[in-house]
Structures are given as C-alpha cells and as structure tokens.
Computed example of a mutant assay.
Amino acid sequence: MAGAAAQDDAEQLLHLKLAFLAGEPPACILALARYALPLAVKIATAPKVYGRQNSTYTTTIFKRIISEVELSSDIVIDALYEEFAQRMLSKAKDSLLNKTNHIYKEISFLSSTHDNVSSSLISVVARLSCSSNMLEGDTGCSLWPSSLFLSEFILSYPEIFSTKCCFELGSGVGLVGICLNYVGASKVILTDGDTSTLTNMKENMELNNVCIKLEDFEELKESKNKVECKYLSWEEASESDLRGYQPDIVLGADIVYDPVCVPHLVRVLSMLLRRDSKQGEVNRKSGDELEMDGPVAYIATVVRNAETFNCFAKAAADAKLSAINIGSSTAPSNFLPYMLSYDRSSVQLLKITLSS
C-alpha cells in the first residue's frame, strides 16, 4: 500500500510539473495541486521548473498556490514567499523590457504504457514560444487543441508518417512538425501565410534542435534539410509553386476557420493531393481508415461555426475531395493526461483524399 501511495504521489507531482511547464491555466494548475499539497510547494520552489516561463504567469501561479496553502491552514515556507518576491521583480523587469507578449511552454508527451512514474516516461518534449494573448490577433503563435490532437495522432500511429514526405498547412508554432520529425518522416515542410508566425516557427524549430532553413521558395525545393519552413499564401499559391514537393501526407490543424479562406484552402489541398503517378502504399492493415493508396490529408479541426464547416464540406465535395471523419475509429492515445484544459472530444479528424 505504501508503494502504491508513493507512486500516486510521484504521478501527481509529475503531472503538476508538466502542466506548469505547458503553461496550463492557473485554475488547472490549482486543480492538480489540490491533490498533492504540500507537493505543490515543492514544484513552486524548484527553480529549474520555471526558469524560462513568462514572469506574469509564474507570479500568478505562486500567488494562487500561496493562497491555497494559507486557506488549508498549512504553513507557507519562507522559500515560497521569497520566490514569489523574485517573480514579482522579474515581472516588473520584463514589463520595462516589453518581454511579456510571449510565453514559453514545454509540451511533454507521456509514454502510453508504463509501470512506474519517472522522467523516462516522457517520449518527446516540444519547447515552444507561444502568444500570451491570442485575443490581440496573434493567433498563429497560439497553441490550439487541434494541434495537440494531431500531434497525439502522429505519435499514436508513427508507421503512417515514418519515411513519408509530410506537408503541413498553417503550421503555427510548429508542434506538429516537431512530432513528425520525432517519428521519422523523411521530409517535413511547414508552411504559414503570416511572416511573424513563420519567424516564430523557425525559432521554435531551432529551440528544439531541429535543422531547418527559412529561405527563398525555389531554394527550399533543393534543400537537403529534413525540416523546412516556408511562406505560403493560399490565395497566391500556384500549381507550379507546389509541383516540386509531391507530399505523401498533407496535414493541418484548425485551418477551417474563415469562410473567405475556404475556397483557397480547398484549391491548395486539391493541388497537393493530385499526383500524376504514384505507386499505392499501405501503412496499416487493421482498418480502411488508415490505408493509403496515394496522397492523403489529415485535418484536425474544432467545429466552432457550423456554417463555416458546412461551407468547407461543400467546397471539398465540389472539388471532388472525399472527406470523412475518422476521429472516433482511430482515436489517438492520451499522451497529455495532465493538460486539463485540453478537450480532445471537441476535435474532429478528417481524412481527405481525391475522389476516384
């Protein structure tokens, strides 16, 4: 019994630490901490945990934890007050330097099978610079649930993506690209139509020690790097621009959001999925949903507006694209149990192919 209790404590502490590093909302951090007080004090006083976090975020977490401990009638150790004071000073300094617009996050994907709790359970860690306020229009630098879902899908079915050329539309912070690189995709092309998002994406690839280049479009076609970041405007993209890539798999997370962009998105998908000659390949034999007889797209999306989604479905059908929801039949493993704010049930996963 003592061993099981110790394992539970270790798991709670690990989840609390990972949630903090992932920048989970304060309410989610406190929900996890309530299971483990005074373990929460340990996480709050470990400098290596919050070393790169946004000072406004860490200050809020410290304040909430101190209040929680005080309300529980536990003694707040001096070190916690001291660290809170240090975070307040850092917050003031960052404000003067105008460094509060982005927040550093570490998204740790846990192994799906394990017998005990330790850091070795973490299969891959993605280090990301993200927007601290998506409401200010910095949506391309925000982390969306569909990106988390698509990343879990890639890690759940690595055999689909290994040794394949993968092309992502609207890559944002680059989380999906990091996971594709991890599972052994032969080539990863990350694209976005916003230059500031593209710059942040490149910095995130470098942060994760992924070899990339951000260059002229024509030079990228000849690049030997495994991961490439490029500017791609759906409105301006031509067939000649995309002909040299011929990806095996096209991916996208939360890219069905604006009815104005839908016709351009469908046109780009059609061009990327069109292949003059390609030998059919099969990644899995366990179900039709994951068979691949040619280029295929996997689009993860949250249906926030039914009218916009229906607009996409109609445009795809008119372009002779077959789109089926495979989210239920091929649900990914839960690699992010500590992210309480992530609602995977809200995400649909579409498999899109050219109609025969």
Rank of each mutant, 00 (worst) to 15 (best):
I326W: 03
L16A: 06
D78C: 09
D343K: 15
L175N: 02
T199E: 14
C166R: 01
A313E: 15
T58E: 00
S233Y: 05
R267T: 13
A19Q: 04
S223K: 09
N98H: 14
L135N: 10
T330L: 15
K164Q: 06
L198H: 03
A92S: 08
K285I: 08
E68R: 07
P259A: 15
S67M: 06
N116I: 04
L207K: 11
I107G: 05
V41W: 00
N98Q: 12
L340D: 00
I29G: 09
V176N: 10
D216M: 11
P337D: 02
L290P: 08
D258Y: 03
F167R: 00
R274P: 00
A19P: 12
L32Y: 05
A4K: 12
E291P: 09
Q246W: 04
T301P: 03
P263E: 12
A313Y: 05
K105Q: 09
L265M: 03
S118I: 02
F309G: 05
I75T: 12
V125K: 08
A331K: 14
I255M: 09
K63Q: 08
D8Y: 05
G170W: 15
V124T: 15
W234S: 02
L321Q: 10
M205G: 07
I75S: 14
S67R: 15
A44S: 09
S111R: 12
V117Y: 10
L128S: 07
L214M: 07
N133T: 03
W144E: 02
N133G: 06
A253E: 03
V188Q: 04
D216Q: 10
V173S: 14
R243H: 14
T60W: 02
G244E: 14
L89M: 05
E106T: 12
Y157H: 11
T100W: 02
E215H: 09
V188E: 04
L155V: 07
S132P: 10
P25Q: 11
C166N: 05
M339G: 01
G287D: 12
I249N: 00
Y35C: 13
I61N: 00
Y182M: 02
D248S: 11
R52C: 03
